[in-house]
Design a protein around this nucleic acid. Sequence first.
DNA 1: TGCCAGGCCGGGT
DNA 2: ACCCGGCATGGC
Length: 228
Amino acid sequence: MAAKLMSVYNRLFLEFGAQKWWPARTRLEVMVGAILTQNTTWLNVEKSIRKLKQHHVLDIKTLGSISERKLSQFIKSSGYFRQKARHVKGLIHFIAEHYHGSIHRMFRTPKDHLRQELLSVRGIGPETADSILLYAGKKLTFVVDQYTKRIFIRHGWISSKANYSDVQNFIMKRLPQKVSLYNEYHALLVQVGKGFCFKTKPNCEACPLKKYLPKKGARPGNITCYPT
DNA sequence: TGCCAGGCCGGGT
DNA sequence: ACCCGGCATGGC
């Protein structure tokens, strides 16, 4: 199975190339983006990020002093904007209280401890915490999202009842422990996952992933496509 | 038009 | 330990 996971990775990489995640300039931008992108398209997040930059709000000092209300107006395009404004403020507050407002200090602390702390911040769940750890902190943690789960379930590699840590453990036990691999692999899963078809029957003609359907004598690594 | 998007929380079983 | 409604804008 370990070899199969790498086979999938290699095939995706050949098809889509390096994804160069996270699409952000600073670690703060990664963290804010990780909250904003919850259950939302990245396109909507980009608009919010642009607005935050335009108004010179995307630095830790300003995010600390700006009102929740005002912040929420800048991030409307990301949806759930009141909640997300509160959550971003909560994260900034956490960094201020625990790490003197220093992102550098924050990422100097051990991964497992920091993960627990991040999970205690309202609005930061397992995926957001792992995104922050991997993409902002370059820590060795695999990010599991709906696409990842869906793809692995559809291949029959994990149970449809698997929870977040089940999927994460499954993957991390079988992949080489390399941050750059975790980074690229998750990004590729998202990329291919976007093409999945939800409204059609198994092996439908219209499926955008048709070219990945197993041909006869399918080899490991093919991506199948059918509705959830 | 209705459904989906790179989740998470709080209340209920 | 799960299950569910709520949160909200934007694109197809």
